[in-house]
Design a protein around this nucleic acid. Sequence first.
DNA 1: CCGAAATGTAACCAATATAGTTCCATAAAA
DNA 2: TTTTATGGAACTATATTGGTTACATTTCGG
Lengths: 144, 144
Amino acid sequence: MTGNSRFAVSVHILAYLAYRQGAAVPSAEIASSVDTNPVVIRRLLSALVKTRLVSAQKGASGGFSLATTAENISLRDIYRAVEPEPSHGLAHFAPNTKCPVGAKIEAILQATFVKAQAAMEAELARVSLADVHHQLRAVCPGKK
Amino acid sequence: MTGNSRFAVSVHILAYLAYRQGAAVPSAEIASSVDTNPVVIRRLLSALVKTRLVSAQKGASGGFSLATTAENISLRDIYRAVEPEPSHGLAHFAPNTKCPVGAKIEAILQATFVKAQAAMEAELARVSLADVHHQLRAVCPGKK
DNA sequence: CCGAAATGTAACCAATATAGTTCCATAAAA
DNA sequence: TTTTATGGAACTATATTGGTTACATTTCGG
């Protein structure tokens, strides 16, 4: 169970909401598509609602729907909504500051990691949920 | 203890070897700089030796040293040597293939993740161990 | 040639994260 | 008022990571 699948599942969730065209979709239906437990879905949706990518409607005939158009949502938005702050492996990294190398390596690494992370996120920013949606439609065009 | 620090520690290890200028450095000395157990260091060095970034010498007065110049080692080389194959969170991701969305989302995500990963590694490729070494020397120039 | 010092691994433990699950309070539509 | 849904707490199982001990093997140095 290594590496988290939060981001992958979250993209799946939003792609599903786009596919359902604004209907109020209950978490159980999404969970069926993702093949997991509705609570897992709601946990992720909680973060997506907080960042205003999704709106939630409680009560009977309630559910979730996109809060904006698929064009306005990038994969980077989704990534940032559901991924914890990247530690770059520095969380567990506490070198001996009495050693000249240990004293300064952390700051040097930090700067490099931030740049590498930014490059990755820039690539995610280039892909919108609409792009994902279009690729889905290209594969199964007959669906509602 | 989340997120692994293998990469950060490995860069530290190689920076330390560069700092020690070709001497045979025992794992215990490196462990002192990183402030961890020598076995942890040897585990990482095992991968670095296998990828020919480092050479090992057994026996008394043995130790580890760079197998090539610091200019010839990029942070991406180190990253690839010690990080497992990136799963992009797809390891745990097995959607319902009977759903039109679930059936195709995985392939779409995979392509995007590969591009994002490549962008990150390209950034790492731009930094050499020599760059790290020079930054260290700039901070503490008087050291051996 | 013998002992000290080192690598190379296996085995195990503790801490942590993730995903899955059960349960229940709350809210809202029908 | 009943049904259906979100929201969230609490618990469990599993995997990974880093740390640790232990030990076999190798090799230098006296």
